[in-house]
């Protein structure tokens, strides 16, 4: 069964400029699905709409158009979800400080949702579970951290707690938005392994938003590459790394830092143009080193080039 299905999803933010109405097309006609237990990585430039997509699917933001289905049930159209569905869909926020109310200790912030959703039969059991998770994430001894306020912790400590908070609720679907961005490699390895074990044991599907290609390809089964609100490439994670097809994906890969070897960077022109009017051709056209004439005229569709490998590019197809 598909855990998540997204159909022609759009989110436009209105913007007023010189009396005229423009729109920021943060998510523009995106469709894909996530199978049970599958982990899908979302890659793309800062500002391309990754977090907005995460908000739309976890129903914290209303769509402009399109549909979202959770286990074949339509959840779009409203931000109200049945209490249990709310629990089953969890979002790890990009900014971990937003996950915690500064007036509560982090322990309280972890415990209260468990009470609300009646996970565990009593507080002692719940606390034991929380401690266990904290130790797994390297917050040891857990008692040291449990009664602190969010501002009394380091950035990476708060980030780890925000991951645990979502995991403790045993979601069926988890959106992880740059969830290890503040962790150094060694702690990150432990946390990622913990998260992956958890996901595979409980068959949790995940949307793993990251700008780190090596991390994304390590964690995910499939990867979706976005550019300015559009999906430009979808493929198996291994395939994306081995055989990237879209020029933008190839550029991203060429910039991915490697420590002991200088890789040749494919030069990229300019920077992201704010898209206020609906573009005629391909959105990447002006920055693309390979662009052809038709690129400026026709918006390329996402087509399957090889089995399971979809690309939206005139040059490739």
């Amino acid at each position: 069964m598909k855990t998540i299905e997204v159909k022609n999803l759009k989110k436009y933010f209105p913007l007023r400029k010189l009396g005229k109405r423009y729109y920021i097309r943060a998510v523009d006609d995106v469709s894909f699905s996530i199978e049970e237990g599958e982990i899908v990585g979302i890659l793309g430039e800062s500002g391309c709409g990754k977090s907005t997509l995460g908000f739309l699917i976890s129903r914290l933001e209303r769509e402009t158009e399109g549909d979202v289905f959770f286990r074949n049930q339509k959840i779009s159209g409203t931000l109200r979800l049945p209490k249990d569905t709310r629990r089953r869909i969890q979002l790890i926020l990009q900014n971990p400080y937003d996950s915690f109310d500064p007036r509560f200790t982090v322990g309280e912030s972890l415990l209260i949702p468990l009470r609300i959703h009646k996970i565990g039969s009593h507080d002692l059991e719940r606390k034991r579970k929380i401690y266990e998770y904290m130790e797994m994430a390297g917050l040891s001894p857990a008692t040291n951290y449990y009664e602190r306020y969010p501002h009394e912790l380091s950035g990476g400590q708060v980030q780890r707690l925000s991951i645990l908070r979502a995991m403790l609720l045993k979601p069926d679907f988890l959106v992880a938005d740059e969830c290890v961005s503040m962790l150094d490699v060694s702690v990150r390895a432990d946390v990622i392994n913990f998260l992956l074990n958890f996901a595979s044991l409980s068959k949790t599907s995940m949307m793993f938003i990251t700008h780190d290609i090596s991390l994304g390809s390590f964690v995910s089964n499939r990867i979706i590459v976005m550019y300015l609100g559009k999906v430009v490439e979808i493929a198996k994670a291994k395939e994306i790394v081995k055989n990237p097809l879209h020029p933008y994906t190839r550029i991203l890969l060429s910039y991915s830092p490697v420590l002991f070897e200088k890789r040749k960077k494919i030069p990229i022109k300019g920077y992201v143009q704010p898209l206020l009017e609906k573009p005629k051709g391909c959105r990447f056209f002006q920055r693309c080193p390979f662009s052809q004439k038709e690129c400026s005229e026709i918006d390329p569709k996402l087509v399957e080039i090889e089995k399971g490998h979809l690309v939206a590019c005139h040059v490739v197809s």
Binding site: D184, V185, S186, A189, D190, L215, F218, L259
Partner: peptide
């Protein structure tokens, strides 16, 4: 610390942390 850096060039290899915690 450097050893736990996931070197992009060796896919399939597991990223390892440093055993234990602070």
């Amino acid at each position: 610390l450097l050893k736990s850096h996931p070197d992009f060039l060796k896919p399939g290899e597991e990223i390892k942390g440093i055993r234990g915690a602070l």
